[in-house]
Design a protein around this nucleic acid. Sequence first.
RNA 1: GCGGUAGUGGCGAAGUGGUUAACGCACCGGAUUGUGGCUCCGGCACGCGUGGGUUCGAUUCCCACCUACCGCCCCA
Length: 431
Amino acid sequence: MAYQRPKGTADILPGESEKWQYVEATARNVFKSYHFSEVRTPMFENFDVFSRSVGDTSDIVTKEMYDFHDKGDRHIVLRPEGTAGVVRAYVENKLYGPEHPKPVKVYYMGPMFRYERPQSGRMREFHQIGVEVFGSEQAAVDVETIAMAMDFLKHCGLQDLKLVINSLGNIASRQAYRQALIDFLEPHFAELSHDSQERLHKNPLRVLDSKDEKDQAIVADAPSILDYLDEESTAHFTAVKQLLGDLDIPYEIDANMVRGLDYYNHTIFEIMSNSKAFGGQYMTVCGGGRYNGLASELGGPETPGFGFAMGVERLLLIMDADKVAMPIDHALDVYLVSIGDAAQRANLKLIQAIRQAGFTAERDYLDRKAKGQFKTANRLNAKVVLTLGDSEVESATAHLKNMATGAEISVPFAQITTDFKAVYETVLAAE
RNA sequence: GCGGUAGUGGCGAAGUGGUUAACGCACCGGAUUGUGGCUCCGGCACGCGUGGGUUCGAUUCCCACCUACCGCCCCA
């Protein structure tokens, strides 16, 4: 094989691309009903946009970014996630200005890049559908946005979803907890896994997330962040839980759940699926939360924010495993069969007229025999086949065959070019 | 970054240190000068992931690399 696609990338071919379109269209529809608008930001940003926002001790920044220096010696990175760029755009374009009604609600969909070892549901170039809401601290924003994510996944046919929430509290609460956690873990330092030792001082919350058994045993007795929430943080989290209850959205609280990105505070959540696609294990399809303070971190005014992102590859994996039926439209209205050069020429005008009339039409381009052309028409599921040979060209009349019934009728060219809709209906009615 | 498994035509899949690399599906052609299904006949890998090495000879043995899949790490 002369050329191969880069490791961890995929070609999304016809047959597969229709599924992507369906998922994307579903997202647009659902998001529209919540009054979100699309935003499109660059696929690469300055390095600082991510190191500032995602956190320079995060795994994403320390080892997973596709970064390089361009010909102007700018330090560029292919975006590893969507939020930072959207926040940058929000600030740079002053969407915080008074002429923009608050909250500003946007969604995006597109490729993200992380330098990782590919696995099922994890690619180096992968795709996310995400949303961001700027300008409101209200718990209703958290809850409605979570509800929208659930809504979307249900529209995609997903069953058995589990919503897990937690609160990281505001900056003060988080700082207090961070210290408490360090104080708790330090006596156990020698027993911790290597990774957790590394993280203890850089990002102790991540130790909570460790899958190492010994770490988990230690962490089991660690203080809970929920006990360190101050009054404001508690009030917010309580409101979130109440509103989820009002909407009858079931959820679990996992006080050990953290996020890989540093910018989160207050509510964080994940939506998980235990689909066969992941061997019955729970796998996260959607993750997000609140990120008050990120906009100011990127040079804008203090602005509360809330958002989520979901992995399209993972979503599609689940939909495949769960055999979700997608209404994919492959309909071909007309296939044109022509025998001989004169017929081919005549067909050109007819097929264009048919397409202009709003019908889907295909023909043969390989000079195949009539039989071969009919076989193709059949395989493409053409509803009607229009046949043309020398005699038809002479009489300026085409044969139209109803492929379902086998009935055939003759129609003058003039009628086909001027009113194909009527012709088509006549053929379909032919027994 | 670490560990494991694998890589033969468009797809699935057999196979061997040595003349022409099974078979199935798909596709193309013919039987049927211009009509879909079935059947029958015929065609379809100068090649066995890539590059080296061993050998008189390698798809088969050895090494490296690449890629995919699974797990770790982490995440969507």
